[in-house]
Design a protein around this nucleic acid. Sequence first.
DNA 1: CATGATGGTGTTCCTTTGACACTATGTCAA
DNA 2: TTGACATAGTGTCAAAGGAACACCATCATG
Lengths: 205, 205
Amino acid sequence: MDIAVTTELAIFSVQDGALRVLLETGATDGLPKAPFPGDADLDRFAAALLSRLTGFDGVYIEQLYSFGRRSQNTAMTGVTVAYFALIPPAVSSTVRSGLYWQPLNENWHLPNEQREVLELATQRLRDKLGYSSIALPLMPEEFTLGHLQEVYEIIGGEALDKRNFRKRILSLAYVEETGRQRRNGSHRPAMLYRARNPGRVEILR
Amino acid sequence: MDIAVTTELAIFSVQDGALRVLLETGATDGLPKAPFPGDADLDRFAAALLSRLTGFDGVYIEQLYSFGRRSQNTAMTGVTVAYFALIPPAVSSTVRSGLYWQPLNENWHLPNEQREVLELATQRLRDKLGYSSIALPLMPEEFTLGHLQEVYEIIGGEALDKRNFRKRILSLAYVEETGRQRRNGSHRPAMLYRARNPGRVEILR
DNA sequence: CATGATGGTGTTCCTTTGACACTATGTCAA
DNA sequence: TTGACATAGTGTCAAAGGAACACCATCATG
């Protein structure tokens, strides 16, 4: 009656203007996963796997869903526990070799069960954008409000009004000024902000 | 590397003015559960277990969370997949013997891990009350708005304004009039309503 | 027919949300 | 030096949504 349990991760990051998911190269490319040994805590195991894959520690990870009897095609049966994680724009060196960042707005092949996980994860991300500070784990330590708005727009898939966006974000007090500025190109420099509670995603309302 | 997988159910119902959870009598009373055989779909298996326990078929059930390495005390290790389900006020005969309805507002003993599941489930129920039609699976086929409000108040734990409640519910159009009335005691009879989409919990906004 | 018990109904105010356009400050090139 | 360009930053108004609030209606019963 014992069963193979697999942990599967949908790891997101926003890079070069696109929401991307981390894929593992292999026989068929797919979401990174590992067999769960059973002698550890599931959530801790997933977090450790995330850290091993990306080099990031203590970043956002959340359990998504558990599936029984995945992949009806293959003979393999078992239980898959899917997680979804968010990491800041990665310096390329931090990600382990054999992994790459796949933009979500392109079309590419992914096994059906993994596509289901991925869609569930992106849906969750989009939903939480509206009632939590879920975007912050995707940001670098310091960022401008313009950059934050860009991330919201990339995930949400629609343009936002700048004034309303800033009003809302500042009233929610997710973020605070660092006092420093970023001078970027040939234009007015922008104030830099940071998360008020780094590593903590807060729910609103 | 294979692991025992257990399915655990937190089944709620509102009866006699209290939110109650279905417990199984045993060495220590607790949430009903069953080993997952691995040759079935997890969600289907949980639904079948629910049906076997309560006699209700096709009622509301939702996956809650999966835990690894439960019960650090006992030697037993494994994965537990917890579900939460809602059933209408049960005619007592439908529930299998060895089971009983425990009111949540009393204090009683429950193993720690199961208490965690139960608190997660009640929290989810309370949250969803605000943005979905989650209360309907708890109602009988026909019900009055007063009865529906009572269920909201029992779950939410606070009194609601009658006029605002009715305005909101009717504008959301979860429910529709049956045209029939219930004459109950020595007072004005109440209109009966039914779910517009029985068996379907809708998310709002 | 008076009492008691629950059913049913609208308005007002306040807060929140969404639409909308112009000035500020820096770099760069002519 | 100054004009062009690019992004940063700022306030108002109207509409919608949510919360507070009190009275009449209808039935059974004694």
